[in-house]
Nucleic acid binder design. Sequence first.
DNA 1: TGATAGTTGCTTGACGATTAGCAAGTAAGT
DNA 2: ACTTACTTGCTAATCGTCAAGCAACTATCA
Lengths: 220, 220
Amino acid sequence: MDVHPKVIPSKVSRRRTQVERRAQGEKALLDAAAELFAAQGIVQTSLAQIGQRAGYSRGLVNHHFGTKDALIDRLARQCQEQFWKAFAEIDVETGLEGILATIDTYLAQIVSPAPHGRAFLVMRAAALPEASMAPTIAEADERTREVFVSWIETGHRDGSISRRVKAEPFAAILLGLLHGLAAQLFVAPDAVDMGALRSQCHDVVRAALEEREPRREERQ
Amino acid sequence: MDVHPKVIPSKVSRRRTQVERRAQGEKALLDAAAELFAAQGIVQTSLAQIGQRAGYSRGLVNHHFGTKDALIDRLARQCQEQFWKAFAEIDVETGLEGILATIDTYLAQIVSPAPHGRAFLVMRAAALPEASMAPTIAEADERTREVFVSWIETGHRDGSISRRVKAEPFAAILLGLLHGLAAQLFVAPDAVDMGALRSQCHDVVRAALEEREPRREERQ
DNA sequence: TGATAGTTGCTTGACGATTAGCAAGTAAGT
DNA sequence: ACTTACTTGCTAATCGTCAAGCAACTATCA
């Protein structure tokens, strides 16, 4: 694993204030951690690697964040913010369009060259059996489900989403679908065609959400 | 974490053959590993803990499997077999019913008291950034998607599934949905109601798969 | 403006704890 | 007796954490 500093931050350029120094160091550490976590996992990444990659020493993580767990928690929240920021910029007419746009936004974050999306996936996966991370991740899930719930209720009001659709369980299904898809893409990026996936995804969600005509024959 | 042996295998009972001894030891180790992985994760579980939990010594894992990675790979395949065995027992009429039954079977494995389902989830999650496990997991995903593909094609033939549904991308979506749902249940078992989830899951899949009447009005 | 003392960011050395793997030994089955 | 299952002592390596020290920045005063 390449652990060397990608770009040496402009530390040599000019006289910086203390707040600038601190902010630059902290950002460099978080970026380095995101890249390394995304590439090789959390436990496989040592604090020394993070410091080196960021262009600093091994001790800086402890100086800034205290412990490794604190860094992880901080980074998880920051990565999650990226998602919400992107979600918040969605501007569409109907609830159904909101859901579809959110799906696209999520997938775009995952395949983005910026490591934050994938780093969040890795941290989310690592949280499964780890008590220390579970609360943060559970809270993130909760908030993301609420985004979906809100779109569904909007759709109920504007008529783009059938009232038969129950908001909470459907939000859980949708979030699960996205996380699960992302996980498959992660371990085997070429196993499924991204374009077909996105289009089929839209079809499925549309079919599930839109008002349906009563079917001619009812199966058993 | 409680690491003590759950049930001492009947080693004292009777004179066993060598093959019985080997099989018992191996099974005890794999069971212990599954329980510990499911409860506290892979890297957090040491070989010594596995041996102790199985009622043996620290060194037995190395003796039987050589390395920790070999044990993990072996266990991942075994857990995956549990899923496929359960899938293979599904006996229904139509392709659509096959899909729905597969969903129920999957969810049942996850909430089962036996640790293999959750252990597989944990191993799958750990494989995200880990090159050594990714191929095994990617292969497992591939085979599971094929189960879905096969049901979808059955449904195409018997008319229970619309021909508009493309098998491969839909299989990926379905697998993602299940894995993602399971992951949510893992970190926050009480966040969503299991019954409502299952029922909504069926609704979504039904809506996506069944032939639809042409809608009265087409939205933009 | 320029020197100096104080504050804060950052580095380095060291410690304690943990762990996977192996080699040599013991016990159980044939 | 002899093979095979299993145990135990050992080693080398890794890593998180912290205390002490060094370097960069800031404020004060001449």
